[in-house]
Design a protein around this nucleic acid. Structure first.
Lengths: 210, 210
DNA sequence: TTCTATATTGAACAGTCATTCAACCACCGC
DNA sequence: GCGGTGGTTGAATGACTGTTCAATATAGAA
């Protein structure tokens, strides 16, 4: 029952991890303003222990940031380097749905990273932009993308459609009857998104006039 | 030099408005955690006056919320009720670009509304969803939308593409050289977005095989 | 066992916060 | 002039915050 595998950090076993996960949830739902005492209570430890393990409240935030970042980098690095273009984009989409889908805390924390602009938060989103751009370039070379599409905005358009539900989850929740990240809801939405990205939404003027 | 026009609220003339606008900017950039003293100083008044005018810090937040909400509702209500479908969707898009484009404070404040879920904030986004849904239905009846598109996700897909740059503005800023909401940048992006919504991004499989 | 290092506690401290309040000022009707 | 009403101030207050620290518990090494 000792340590099992040094997945993320060494000596990240019990209390330290409990504090970090409690902070992930509370920072996500209530923002960085939550009292350290509240985090400590949620983790079942004393306030002093939080400082002992993370040095300061900012240190705790940095640790939470890095743990979230690590989840994504780990998954990105695990992707096979030589996938054909269409499989690569699908594999990357799977990383997001696998990580985000079952983990509401990470979704909410990421949403907050958009505002607070901590180093790890910016890294996560910058990686997303660059990964999307690279994926689209691969796809373009394979002939999978319209030649007259705008390379400047393409990555952001794809990211907007993929990340939109993440950022607007509370809004979406109020308008659809079911949890926005329930597995089969994600499946339906992903399918609809792929459809829009493939064929558009509006009837093109050429089609209309012809 | 007395009151000019009762645009938003009565008796909303000088100090009260200055405090409200200072709070809009500071809450947007630094979050609701900014000290009341800082807001007062930015508005050039004493801390006590803020309480005198708004009752409490939460009262100030509510006032800011309502003022932002009012800007949008005012513009939505001003839209002609009997526009043809394609002009309606364009008119609504113009409301966003007109209000959001020149006003960085409102953009940042809206971004924060997405998280903090204040009443007015949820109203703004709910109105956006419903307005988009109505616009799409009108457009569909006019034959402007692909019949096989998914009515459940359509409004969110459009909103994601339109609002994505708003929510990801800091991310976008780091990847394109220029301000994400400079007028001609908005023009280019809007054009690219319309293109994606009209024709899609990927080469459809039918087109690929045929 | 004893020693040592680490984990853990909770009371105490110093700072900051929103809020209160008594006073002051400016203007307007009389 | 005079009274008063409302805008405005800034010091005082009490609650809450992150952090410190001396004390205690725990566990492994010698």
């Amino acid at each position: 029952m000792s340590r099992r595998s040094p997945t993320v950090q060494d000596s990240d076993l019990s209390a330290r991890a409990k504090i970090r996960e409690a902070a992930l949830g509370l920072f996500g739902t209530s923002g960085f303003g939550v009292p350290l005492r509240t985090v400590a209570q949620a983790a079942g430890v004393s306030p002093g222990l939080v400082i002992h393990h993370f040095g300061s409240k900012d240190g705790l935030r940095a640790a939470v940031d890095e743990s979230v970042l690590a989840v994504f980098l780990e998954r990105f690095d695990a992707l096979p380097k030589d996938l054909p273009a269409d499989q690569l984009s699908r594999a990357m989409a799977n990383v997001f749905s696998d990580v985000l889908g079952p983990n509401a805390d990470i979704r909410q924390y990421l949403r907050r990273c958009l505002l607070d602009e901590t180093p790890a938060g910016t890294t996560i989103f910058d990686e997303m932009v660059e990964a999307t751009r690279r994926g689209l370039e691969l796809l373009e070379r394979a002939g999978g993308i319209r030649a007259d599409s705008d390379p400047e905005w393409r990555p952001f358009q794809v990211l907007s459609i993929v990340l939109g539900p993440l950022l607007m989850e509370p809004v979406m929740q109020r308008h659809i009857g079911e949890p926005a990240y329930a597995p089969e809801v994600v499946r339906r939405r992903t399918s609809a998104n792929l459809d829009v990205l493939s064929r558009g939404l509006f009837v093109s003027s050429a089609e209309k006039r012809g």
